[in-house]
Design a protein around this nucleic acid. Structure first.
Lengths: 150, 150
DNA sequence: CTTCCTGCAAAGCATTTGCATCCAT
DNA sequence: ATGGATGCAAATGCTTTGCAGGAAG
């Protein structure tokens, strides 16, 4: 849960061939501060309201798309019609998302590869790629009534 | 791959407490004719252009949402920002989708339940629900060059 | 310098909604 | 008859784009 320093973020961008501008650093810095996933709109509002950043909404969209293409961030699709973004570890993994507060837990150690490969093969599919999304309600959102009550 | 008769479709709607209007029957009939998944827009265009139906676009959206809520059809999310709909079997299953032509193969026999349950439990999540989407390229879209050449 | 980036406002798209009218029961 | 369904058009909300000015290498 270590939040990267400004310098580390700058290196991250440069390592991926992305020019480290002021706006991009602000944006990825805000993403790094968020353990869960955020929409472009929310991120923009946060930058303006909480960080006094003057970044434009269009830039937020452009930057998120750019970082996604460079595999620096992940785009999740668990809301309909609104993408969520998240700074992710670079190994293959899935997500456990709370339906209520959108808290995200990373699920590592995915075993599906070989099963899917076999399956795809049986139907003539190649170049497969899979995505598992698990939704649920986290303890906090459930109110945890069975332990402490409201 | 048996296409249901008009009568069967009508029963399907009534069995789910959905009033069988002309528009709804036309719509679900068109869905039944499509082995893969379709967007609301495509479905509407098809109804107008190929079936000379006078159904309104809003009605298509309203009907698809209604049928989805009644679990008569499934909504897939594999494009970003545009939902795809499909008449589905009523047991739990997943989909193998071709990235190029959107052909869909149903994957039955999902074993993930217990693994996910354990995992969710470990993180305090309940009421879980999961969705696996496998994307790939089908034999036909690959051109099948290694067998018959173009 | 030259190329790429940003801001703003306008445009684009899929989807939803308000409301008068129409149809199934 | 009567409540739900439909059609049309206007409204929403997220995302993209055009273009003139600005910053990075």
């Amino acid at each position: 849960v270590a939040i990267p320093t400004q310098g580390e973020l700058q290196e991250l961008l440069q390592a991926n061939g992305v020019r480290p501008t002021r706006q991009r650093l602000e944006l990825i810095g805000e993403l790094a501060r968020e353990p869960n996933d955020v929409t472009a709109q929310t991120l923009w509002r946060r930058l303006r309201d909480e960080r006094e950043s003057k970044v434009g909404l269009a830039t937020v969209y452009r930057t998120l798309a750019l970082l996604r293409d460079h595999h620096v961030i992940d785009a999740l699709n668990h809301r309909g019609g609104e993408l969520c973004y998240r700074l992710c570890s670079d190994t293959h993994h899935h997500h456990l998302v709370c339906r209520s507060c959108h808290r995200v837990v990373e699920i590592d150690g995915c075993d599906l590869g070989s099963w899917i490969e076999t399956l795809a093969d049986a139907h003539g599919f190649t170049d497969t790629d899979h995505r598992l999304e698990v939704a649920g309600v986290c303890a906090e959102c459930r109110g945890d009534a069975r332990r402490s009550g409201p």
